[in-house]
Nucleic acid binder design. Structure first.
Length: 775
RNA sequence: UGGGGGAUAGUUUAAUCGGCAGAACGGGUGACUCUGGAUCACUUAGUCGGGGUUCGAAUCCCUGUCCCCCAGCCA
C-alpha cells in the first residue's frame, strides 16, 4: 500500500498512543445521488486505512436534508460499496438516527451560552454576515437569555413556527476572518417529510453541526474528507472540543479525484441523465460506479486505479490514460480470448471442400497468460474477416491482407488473397477469393511470407450480435473549459457511442455465463450488456479498446488545439489596485512609526555592514532588536555571522512565535555563534545545539560538553575514513567518476555518519574530492 | 480584496536529520510475437521565479508569481 500523508499521521498517532480505541474511519455519503469514481477514492481510502491499521470503517449516511434524500439512493450506495469489495459489518449508521442526541447537544450549547435562536430572515442573516473582506455584524437576537433560547428552540422542535422563522446558531465570532465561524447555523426549520424519520421532526441539523458530532458519537478517530472542507475544520474542532470527550476525532482533508474528459459533479451528472444525453445513471459512458459496472469494468481495476493515483493535497486532474491502462491491465489476465468480427468482409476459400466444416481447438489464452482452456471454433469454406484487415492498396507498414499477400487466420490456416471481387458500379470490395495452405495448421509454412495473423469467424456458424462501442463522453480534457457563455454540454463528444449491428461472434460464447468478460482478439475487451442482451439477441458493450500502436502511428495526432482558454474570467481588473500589505511592508511601516526601530535599522547597516535586507528582517519588532543588540554586545566581532544565524536559523526554529518565548537570551545565542566561528564546532553541530537550546534553554557550552561535540579537522584521521567510505561503495565511486557528481552528497553523508557528525565538513569534502578525482 | 490551503518530468506521485531527485502512466526506439495485445530492454523529461544561509537545499530564511476553497437556512 502506498504511503501518504494521512497514513503518516495515523502511524504517528498510533506510535504516540493518541487514541484509546482502534483506528475508526467512516465513509459518509449523503443519499441524494449515485456514487461515482470520485467516491471510490474516498471509499478505498477510508476502508483501506481501517483495514491496514486493524481498525474499522463505518458506512454512515449523512441524511440531514430531507428534501433531496431517498431510500433508493441508500440502497444503490450500499450496493456499490459492496460491489467495490468493502464490508462495513454491523457499522451501518444514519445521521437521522442521531437526531435526538444531536438535539440534546444543541440544548447543551444553549444552556452553556454557546448557541442562540436567531429570528432574522434569511436575507438579513446574509446581510449581517458581511463579506470576505468585511466583518459581519451581530444579530440583535444574539444576546437572548438562555431561558428564552431554550423556550424558542423547544417550540421550533414542537412545530410552532413556519419554515424560516428562526434558526439556531452557534455563538462564535461574527468578525472572524473565516466566514464559516460567523455564528454558523446549526438548525433550520423545515416542515418536510424525511425518508426515514417521516414527520417526526420539523427541525433539521446542518452538516457543520451533524457531521462532527456524528463522528463523535461513533467515536471516529480520523475523519477524512475532501479539500473544500478545510475551512469547515474550525467548526468541527469547536464543536468536538466543546461536546465530545477526548480523545476527539480529527478531520484531515485530501484532494478529490478529477479525471480527464469526465465530469464528476453531481449536478452535471444529473443534467446529463435528465436531459437525455446519456441513457441513464448506469449508462456505460457514465463515471458512476453503476455505469462502470455495466460497462464491464471490474471493482479490482477501480481500486487499483485510485490506489495508483494516491492521496495528497494538490488539486489534480488525472489523465484518462492511467485509468485505461489499469482497466486493460486487470482484464488482460482475466478475460478469455475469443473472436468476433465487427465489420465483416466475406472470404471464400476456393480450395477448401464445399460443405465441409471442421472444429479447431483454440486456446482461450495467449502464451504469456498462465491459464488453460480451449473451445472449438468452426471453420469452413466461407468465413468473415474484418474489413479493416484487407487493403486493396496497402499503405506503407501495413501488415495485413492485400492482393497476393498471405496472412495467418488466427488459430487456423494461412491464406493467400488471389482475387478481389468488387461491385462493378461502386468499386466496393464485396468478397475475397483466397486459397489456403492445408499443411499450415499449427505450423509455419516454408517459403511463404506470412504478414500477420488476423481474426475471423465462420460465415455459417457465427452468431450475429449488436456491439456498442463507447468512447469518452467529452471531447476536451477539461469539459468545464468552455467558450464565454457556453455550457459543458458543448464539449460533449458526439461519437461517444457507436452502435454496430453487423457484428458476428464465434458460437462458443453461447456456452458462457452472460457476465463473462472477453477479449475479442485484436479489438478490445467486451461484456454482454446486463440490461439488453438476450441469448437470441446478443448485445455486447466494449469495455475498452486494446492499445493500438498501428492506429496511433497512422492517425497523426490532431494538432493539439491551442484555442485560447476561456475559463471563468477573473472579474475585470479594478482600476485601483488594492495594496496588499506584505510582511516586508508591515516591517517598513513599523519602522516608520517607531524611531527606535528605524535607528536600529540604520545602525545595523552602518556599524555592522549588514545588507538592508538583513537589517530589515532583524528590525521587524523591538524585541528582536533588543535580543540582537544583546548578542552583538556579547560578541562584537560576530556581526555578519550573528545576522545569518539569527535570520536563517533562529527564526526558522521560532516559527511564528515571538522571540520573547525563547528560554535563553541574546548573550547565550552569541556564545553559540562564537563557538562555531572560532572552529570549536562546525555549522551543523551549531544548528543542533541551537535546537536543544530552544527546547531546553540550556547554555551552549553545557550542551556541547554533554554531547561531547567537537570538530575533527585532522586530515590523516579523516583521510582514513574517506578511504574506507570509497572502498565500501566501489560502484558509486565509478558512477561519480562517470559524471554523477551529485553522489558527493551521498559520500559526505557516509563520512559524517562514520564520524558521528564530528568531521569538519570542509576538510572532508576536500579530501573526498581529492580521493575521487585523484585516482 | 480578508482568511484558509496548494505548487516536484506531459500527468499523478515519492524523497528519515538538510546528504544519490525515485516510481508509475504517457511519449519515443528496438527485441519478441499465430493478437499492430501482452512482455522485455533502452530512451525522453522535473524541484514555480528571484535572492540568501550552508561543505551540501525540493527541504531552512527573505521575496515575488500562479492555482484552489469560503459570503447556502446544501453536503
Amino acid at each position: 500500500m502506498p504511503k501518504d500523508f494521512i497514513r503518516d499521521i495515523i502511524t504517528q498517532d498510533i506510535e504516540n498512543g493518541v487514541y484509546d480505541r482502534p483506528i475508526t474511519t467512516r465513509f459518509p455519503p449523503e443519499p441524494n445521488g449515485f456514487l461515482h469514481i470520485g467516491h471510490a477514492k474516498s471509499i478505498v481510502l477510508n476502508f483501506g486505512v481501517a483495514q491496514e491499521f486493524g481498525g474499522v470503517c463505518h458506512l454512515r449516511f449523512d441524511d440531514t436534508n430531507p428534501e433531496t434524500e431517498d431510500m433508493v439512493y441508500v440502497e444503490s450506495i450500499m450496493r456499490d460499496v459492496r460491489w467495490l469489495g468493502y464490508d462495513w459489518g454491523e457499522h451501518l449508521y444514519f445521521a437521522s438516527d442521531y437526531y435526538e442526541q444531536l438535539y440534546q447537544f444543541a440544548e447543551e450549547l444553549i444552556r452553556r451560552g454557546l448557541a442562540y435562536v436567531d429570528s432574522l430572515s434569511e436575507e438579513e442573516i446574509r446581510a449581517y454576515r458581511g463579506t470576505v473582506t468585511q466583518p459581519g455584524r451581530e444579530s440583535p437576537y444574539r444576546h437572548r437569555s438562555v431561558e428564552e433560547n431554550l423556550n424558542l428552540f423547544r417550540r421550533m422542535r414542537a412545530g410552532e413556527f413556519p419554515d424560516g422563522a428562526h434558526v439556531l446558531r452557534a455563538k462564535i465570532d461574527m468578525a472572524s476572518p473565516n466566514m464559516l465561524l460567523r455564528d454558523p447555523i446549526l438548525y433550520r426549520i423545515k416542515h418536510a417529510r424525511h425518508y426515514r424519520t417521516g414527520d417526526q421532526w420539523c427541525i433539521y441539523p446542518m452538516y457543520d453541526f451533524a457531521h462532527p458530532l456524528s463522528d463523535g458519537i461513533e467515536r471516529i478517530t480520523h475523519s477524512l474528507c475532501t479539500l473544500e472542507f478545510e475551512n469547515n475544520r474550525a467548526i468541527y474542532d469547536w464543536l468536538v472540543d466543546h461536546l465530545i470527550p477526548p480523545p476527539q476525532p480529527r478531520q484531515y482533508e485530501f484532494a478529490r479525484l478529477e479525471l480527464d474528459y469526465t465530469v464528476l459533479s453531481k449536478r452535471y451528472l444529473r443534467q446529463l441523465v435528465e436531459e437525455g444525453h446519456v441513457r441513464g445513471w448506469d449508462d456505460p459512458r457514465m463515471p458512476t460506479l453503476s455505469g462502470l459496472r455495466r460497462r464491464g469494468v471490474t471493482p479490482e481495476a477501480i481500486r487499483a486505479f485510485v490506489e495508483r493515483v494516491g492521496v495528497a493535497k494538490t488539486n489534480s486532474r488525472v489523465e484518462l490514460a492511467l485509468f485505461e491502462h489499469t482497466i486493460r491491465d486487470d482484464l488482460n489476465t482475466r478475460a478469455p480470448r475469443v473472436m468476433a468480427v465487427l465489420n465483416p468482409l466475406k472470404v471464400i476459400i476456393t480450395n477448401y471442400p464445399e460443405g465441409q466444416t471442421e472444429l479447431i481447438e483454440a486456446s482461450y489464452w495467449p502464451r504469456d497468460i498462465p491459464k488453460e482452456g480451449t473451445r472449438p471454433v468452426p471453420f469452413s469454406r466461407e468465413i468473415y474477416i474484418e474489413r479493416d484487415d484487407f487493403a486493396l492498396e496497402p499503405p506503407k507498414g501495413y501488415k495485413r491482407l492485400a492482393p497476393g499477400r498471405s496472412v495467418r487466420l488466427r488459430h487456423a490456416y494461412v491464406i493467400t488473397c488471389d482475387e478481389v471481387i468488387q461491385d462493378p458500379a461502386t468499386g466496393e470490395v464485396v468478397a475475397l477469393h483466397c486459397s489456403y495452405l492445408p499443411d499450415s495448421l499449427g505450423t509455419r509454412p516454408e517459403g511463404v511470407k506470412v504478414w500477420s495473423a488476423i481474426h475471423w469467424v465462420d460465415a455459417q456458424a457465427s452468431i450475429p450480435a449488436e456491439v456498442r462501442l463507447y468512447d469518452r463522453l467529452f471531447r476536451t480534457p477539461d469539459p468545464y473549459d468552455v467558450e464565454e457563455g457556453g455550457s459543458f454540454l458543448d464539449n460533449l463528444n458526439p461519437d461517444s457511442l457507436k452502435i454496430v449491428t453487423t457484428a458476428r461472434v464465434e458460437p462458443s460464447v453461447l456456452r458462457d455465463p452472460p457476465d463473462t468478460r472477453y477479449q475479442f482478439e485484436r479489438l478490445g475487451y467486451f461484456i454482454q450488456d446486463s440490461e439488453d442482451s438476450r441469448p437470441d439477441a446478443l448485445v455486447f458493450n466494449r469495455i475498452i479498446t486494446l492499445r493500438d500502436r498501428w492506429a496511433q502511428k497512422t492517425r497523426p495526432q490532431p494538432a493539439p488545439t491551442t484555442r485560447p482558454r476561456s475559463r471563468p474570467q477573473p472579474p475585470p481588473q479594478e482600476p485601483v489596485i488594492p495594496e496588499k500589505e506584505s510582511l516586508s511592508e508591515a516591517r517598513a511601516r513599523a519602522r516608520a512609526q517607531n524611531p527606535n526601530l528605524q535607528a536600529a535599522y540604520q545602525t545595523l547597516q552602518e556599524r555592522l555592514g549588514l545588507t538592508p535586507q538583513q537589517a530589515d528582517i532583524i528590525t521587524g519588532n523591538i524585541d528582536q532588536v533588543r535580543f540582537f543588540h544583546q548578542a552583538v554586545t556579547t560578541y562584537p566581532q560576530g556581526g555578519q555571522a550573528l545576522a545569518n544565524w539569527f535570520i536563517n536559523r533562529l527564526l526558522a526554529l521560532l516559527k511564528e512565535r515571538p522571540i520573547t518565548d525563547l528560554p535563553f537570551d541574546g548573550a547565550a545565542f552569541a556564545r553559540l555563534v562564537k563557538q562555531v566561528e572560532e572552529g570549536i564546532i562546525h555549522q551543523r553541530q551549531g544548528q543542533q545545539v541551537l535546537e536543544i537550546m530552544v527546547r531546553t534553554g540550556q547554555d551552549p557550552e553545557a550542551i556541547i560538553a554533554a554531547q561531547g561535540m567537537r570538530k575533527v579537522s585532522d586530515e590523516d584521521a579523516l583521510r582514513a575514513v574517506v578511504e574506507q567510505t570509497l572502498a565500501a561503495h566501489p560502484e558509486k565511486v565509478a558512477a561519480y567518476r562517470q559524471g554523477k557528481t551529485g553522489l558527493l552528497g551521498f559520500f559526505m553523508g557516509q563520512v559524517m555518519g562514520a564520524t558521528q557528525g564530528q568531521a569538519d565538513p570542509q576538510v572532508a569534502k576536500r579530501l573526498l574530492e581529492e580521493a575521487l578525482l585523484g585516482k
